[in-house]
Simulated assay, not measured.
Amino acid sequence: MATNSERRILTALTGLLDDRDPSEITITGLVAEAGVTRPTFYAIFGDLPTAFARAALARMADAFAGEAVVEVTVDQRPEVMLGAIGRILGRLGQHADFYSRVVSGHGGQLVQAGAVDFLADELLTNTPVGPLLRAGRIAPETSARAVAAAVVWTVLDWLGSSGRTPVGELAVTVRDLVLYSVVGGLASATPDEDRKESS
């Protein structure tokens, strides 16, 4: 649970990153904006790149809020996933400049790594492919991170492009990327068992 000081810093930082490049933000300016002391900032975040990453991941978590869907039939899976992915992408797209700034600035690698971890956890716990990943032949965390990394790269590329494809088109791409990576892919039998079944 975030402390009041942490919330104040993240709120102030998110507002600053909506309008500025990370290189233009200083700890002095941030703590003044948040109404906290420098020692408070250092105790919570340690440095600006970590704070940038936490702000981006907090906003990302907000985009995913309320979209958990686990219990659906196989036939419902593609449509239910498409709807949730479209809504999430729509919310992420509203802050495309923010994400582009944070990913290209100090702490960008922390943002990307954190996004992969966050999405891997979401895939395992809050989506219809979670049970499939958990039943697969590879450790679920490894499979989920592999799929999450592909999705994060695809979405960050989309957020950073000037002529973004419509949300609906990207939602289909992301849905298919997830489904086809898992169903018949990471959640399928081992290659040796596939060969035995086909002979």
Rank of each mutant, 00 (worst) to 15 (best):
23 S>N: 04
68 A>S: 14
8 R>M: 12
86 G>W: 00
170 L>V: 12
95 H>L: 07
197 E>W: 14
150 A>P: 00
95 H>V: 02
26 T>D: 01
155 V>R: 08
93 G>L: 03
92 L>K: 04
95 H>T: 11
35 G>R: 08
7 R>K: 13
176 D>W: 01
78 P>M: 02
20 R>V: 00
58 A>D: 13
156 L>C: 07
5 S>T: 14
166 P>T: 09
96 A>D: 14
54 R>H: 11
167 V>C: 11
124 L>E: 10
21 D>R: 05
41 F>W: 03
174 V>F: 01
156 L>W: 06
155 V>S: 08
197 E>Q: 13
166 P>A: 13
92 L>I: 10
104 S>G: 12
116 V>M: 03
87 R>S: 12
97 D>I: 03
182 V>I: 10
75 D>T: 08
55 A>V: 05
121 D>L: 05
84 A>M: 05
132 L>M: 13
186 L>V: 07
90 G>C: 07
184 G>W: 10
167 V>P: 04
32 A>N: 12
123 L>I: 00
76 Q>T: 02
103 V>P: 02
33 E>V: 00
20 R>Y: 08
56 A>G: 07
181 S>W: 06
80 V>A: 15
31 V>M: 04
10 L>C: 07
169 E>Q: 13
182 V>M: 07
128 P>L: 03
136 G>N: 06
66 G>S: 03
56 A>S: 12
120 A>T: 05
9 I>L: 15
100 S>K: 11
195 R>W: 14
11 T>G: 05
23 S>K: 11
133 L>V: 02
137 R>C: 07
35 G>C: 09
127 T>D: 04
135 A>Q: 12
185 G>C: 13
93 G>H: 09
37 T>L: 02
184 G>V: 10
164 R>D: 04
17 L>A: 01
31 V>N: 08
62 D>M: 10
156 L>Y: 10
52 F>M: 10
132 L>W: 09
110 L>M: 12
108 G>D: 05
15 G>E: 11
93 G>C: 04
100 S>D: 14
122 E>S: 08
120 A>E: 03
56 A>Y: 05
118 F>I: 03
32 A>S: 14
25 I>N: 01
134 R>I: 04
155 V>C: 03
91 R>G: 08
79 E>H: 14
61 A>V: 04
67 E>A: 14
6 E>W: 03
73 T>A: 11
89 L>K: 03
194 D>G: 02
72 V>S: 02
101 R>N: 09
191 P>A: 09
105 G>R: 10
69 V>D: 00
83 G>K: 05
129 V>K: 00
36 V>L: 05
161 S>D: 15
62 D>T: 12
188 S>G: 15
152 V>N: 06
168 G>L: 08
124 L>P: 09
63 A>G: 10
27 I>A: 14
99 Y>I: 02
55 A>Q: 04
49 P>A: 01
96 A>Y: 06
123 L>S: 06
45 F>L: 07
4 N>D: 15
105 G>I: 07
8 R>H: 09
53 A>L: 07
57 L>N: 08
175 R>N: 10
186 L>T: 03
